[in-house]
Structure formats: C-alpha cells, structure tokens
Amino acid sequence: MIIKFKLNGKEIVKDVPVHKRALDFLRDDLGVLSIKEGCGEGECGACTILVDGKNIHSCLMLAVELDGKEVLTVEGLKDKTIQNAFVEAGAIQCGFCTPGFIISTKALLNENKNPSSEEIKEALEGNLCRCTGYLKIEEAVKLAVKMYNKGSDKK
C-alpha cells in the first residue's frame, strides 16, 4: 500500500507491506536508528515516536497508519535543548532508552512549559531505563525547562 507522510519535515512516499510495523519500516527501511525495539509490546518505550505531536509506540503501530501523519524522531529535533539537558544532567548511561525519553519529554514540554515533578513522572512513566535510576532523568527535564526559560528571558 502506498503511503505518504512527513518524517522529520521531509515528505516521504513509499509502498509498504500492510503487515509491517511502523518501527521496522522507520528503522530498517528509512534508517531512523534512534528508535529501537526493546520489548515489542508497548512496555518499555524505546520505540517512542512523535506522531502529530503525540508520543506513541511505533512497535504497536502499522506502517500504513503513518499515512497522512507528521512524524518526529530525535533525528529531526532542530532545537537541541532537551538533548543538551540530558547530557548535562548525566541522564544517560548506555543510551538505549534515551531517544524514547527525549521524545516523551518533548511531548510533555509541548503541552506544559513548567511541569511539576509529579507531571514529569507521569509523562515519562511509559519509558523504562535500567541504568540511571530515573532521578537524573527527572533532573534533566527540569534543567531543560530552566534552559528554555532562560532562553525566553533573553528574547
């Protein structure tokens, strides 16, 4: 089936088999390597992508469902604030889960410019990290908020 969608700002038209998952299509066919298969059943969040502004699991989505959508992965993030905050806060160890966390953080900050600890935890509850223990990830989100606020002060 031929689908047409936007990936990181670029228009894509492709013929995809109907059984193919969005995860496999994006990673294997289009080379989006930030998204990974962890559990394959919507538990771990390593395959998280942003579809029309909402974070979803690409492992629980068919490629054909991308038709007409706007998809964002970390490869397409022009503003590196969230990534920088994760690095600065030491919220990364092995890095396997990190793109998923960054996309979920992006989804949160799109809707909520000043989230509480509680809201951060809820927004990231679908992403698992086996290295950092989550505290530094929470700090990273708070740091990103701080960086954004500083940025808007200057303007």
């Binding site: 919507g42 969040g45 998280t48 909402k54 974070n55 979803i56 699991h57 629980l60 989505m61 979920s104 989804a107 809820e122 927004a123 509850e125 679908g126 992403n127």
Partner: peptide, 12 residues
C-alpha cells in the same frame, strides 16, 4: 483514566 497504561498507550 490516568492509571491506564502510559501516555503512549493513552494516546492510542
């Protein structure tokens, strides 16, 4: 509703 799944699950 907020106890169901995770944000990604609730978005779908």
């Amino acid at each position: 509703v907020k106890t169901i799944g995770s944000p990604m699950i609730r978005n779908r």
